[in-house]
């Protein structure tokens, strides 16, 4: 067996997987709290990529140094995506809070189509080249055989972001309120939690993570268009379901498992079947563990 090749595939899978995980977190957090599959989440990610592209373009023309472009463009993407996430929840989901569960789902699909077409009209239908925002750094040379600098940054950034998120959920007041809301929304209200604010915070955090993922993935892929949100969103959603939707560690694990499966599948069998591997894995896991890897099966409430 060729270990070098194996390592390469493994690292490729981890890179891919950590980005899936970042975006899957948005799905899983929203599902955990309001039991809605936010289909517009992929579009929020796409908007993040476009924002970063535009911001980076402007900053490059203005002559900023490479690292500051990366940071400022990411910040712009995060802020812009977060405000989109917040607004989408406010206008498309909040009025349907008490409605049957299918209604917000349809609303989510509508929002997704709307945002895609809005970007299509406002921007372009062509693929836009996305300049790699990560400057090539000398200190990464000694591992460049296995991983490019971009990939190292991707893994590092997603790991840091996920650790920060876990700490936030565990220790902050808002994090506690989120967990309480996820477990019993009415009871959370009765102990004084402003549930509307908690839900908004969830959307803001989820969208910010998607924007971070967008900057990372676009830098790695090198091009974006208005439709990228769909397939990435679908993959991230798969990762969330795989790990057990509603569970935050589940989304992280699901992302990595999915990324590695795709990477090994394409590397050892054929790259034509990338998506086949991803979704076969999903089907298999759902057959044997319907609640996902780390999901808990619903206990019937009395």
């Amino acid at each position: 067996m060729d270990w070098g090749y194996f390592k390469e595939l493994l690292m490729g899978g981890v890179v891919k997987g950590s980005i899936y995980a970042l975006i899957a977190l948005g799905y899983t957090m929203v599902y955990g709290i309001i039991e809605l599959i936010n289909f517009a989440h992929g579009e929020i990610y796409m908007i993040g990529a476009f924002t970063a592209l535009i911001a980076a373009g402007v900053l490059t023309v203005a002559g900023f140094p490479a690292w500051s472009i990366l940071i400022l463009a990411s910040a712009a993407a995060v802020v812009w995506s977060a405000s989109y996430g917040y607004t989408v929840e406010k206008i498309a989901y909040r009025p349907l809070r008490g409605a049957p569960r299918l209604s917000p789902l349809i609303s989510a699909l509508g929002m997704s189509i709307f945002l895609q077409n809005y970007v299509l009209l406002a921007q372009t239908s062509n693929f836009m080249p996305f300049k790699n925002l990560f400057p090539e750094e000398g200190f990464l040379e000694n591992i460049s055989e296995v991983l490019s600098a971009t990939e190292v940054i991707i893994i590092f950034t997603s790991a840091v972001v996920m650790i920060l998120l876990s700490l936030f959920i565990k220790y902050s007041t808002t994090g506690k309120a989120m967990r309480a809301t996820a477990q019993d929304r009415n009871m959370a209200m009765l102990v004084g939690v402003n549930v509307d604010k908690v839900i908004s915070a969830t959307f803001i955090i989820g969208s910010s993570l998607a924007a971070v993922g967008a900057v990372l993935i676009a830098s790695n892929m090198g091009q974006i268009n208005f439709f990228i949100g769909f397939i990435v969103g679908l993959k991230a959603f798969t990762a969330a379901v795989l790990g057990g939707i509603g569970s935050i560690p589940g989304a992280m694990l699901g992302g990595l498992v999915l990324g590695c499966t795709e990477s090994f599948g394409t590397g050892y069998v054929s790259s034509d079947y990338e998506d086949v591997f991803a979704f076969t894995l999903l089907v298999l896991i759902l057959i044997f563990r319907p609640a996902g890897l780390l999901g808990k099966s619903d206990i019937q409430k009395v």
Binding site: T173, K176, A177, A180, A188, V191, G192, V193, N194
Partner: peptide, 8 residues
């Protein structure tokens, strides 16, 4: 502590 939420 959640019960203290509205006071912090």
């Amino acid at each position: 502590m959640i019960g203290r939420h509205c006071h912090s």
